[in-house]
Amino acid sequence: MARTLAMFTDTSLCIGCRACQVACKQWNELGLEVPDWTGTYQNHTHFTDKTFRLVRFIEEPKPTGDLAWLLMSDVCKHCAEAGCLDACPTGAIYRTEYGTVNINQDVCNGCRYCVSSCPFGVVSFNETTGTAKKCTFCNDRIHNGLGPACAKACPTDSIQFGFRDDLVTKAQKRVETLKAMGFKDAQLYGADSKGFLGGLNAFFLLLSKPSTYSLPEQPKLPQRNVVVDSLLSVGSAIVIGLGALLAFRDREQGDGNA
């Protein structure tokens, strides 16, 4: 396997220009969508089958009375332990040699299990193609020596693309700098490969706690309970089975024969 590639989205550098969001749409030829009234500059409300990069606008009054406007370009996390991938019954979702998670549109049959299996609400169903869609990590581009379209378009290098280990080192330094500058809540999200989901190949630098950005504090792999839940089902099957067994073993007449 090739060295793992990653995208590092440093929200402290984001200016909310949405060049990434548009570049993604353009490169991937994602079509028109009627927007929601969100009451802020953000559109759309969620990831959709036509919005793989979504810039979030979060107005957060600071304790000092000043305002913080947190801007964050959100994307599929390309989890090292990916719920969507584990869920996919067709094998349409696969991991590339670069460690990214991609959906093979020719294999996907539109069962939508991946949609409910992403801890971040990333995968979306496209009614027209009948398949599931999400950020491809610009699979076509990275296989041809180009970086992702969103990273390329970002004017402030808020989205950086490269080898994961390099980016993590860089990101750690950046957190230190920011902390020294007084951003005491600056933190990495998903950089730690020993942390949740085995680390995210699209990881983030946040200026506030994850929930402020609608990110789960401790996302979990959905498939973690298959064994327990199955055993409980088996247990329940045994009880029911025994009950039925007894009912039918009963050599006496049943009571319904009136």
Binding site: Q26, V34, T38
Partner: peptide
């Protein structure tokens, strides 16, 4: 242009 126009609701 749809990709830009859709970025603001109205």
């Amino acid at each position: 242009l749809p990709m830009l126009a859709e970025l603001h609701h109205s």
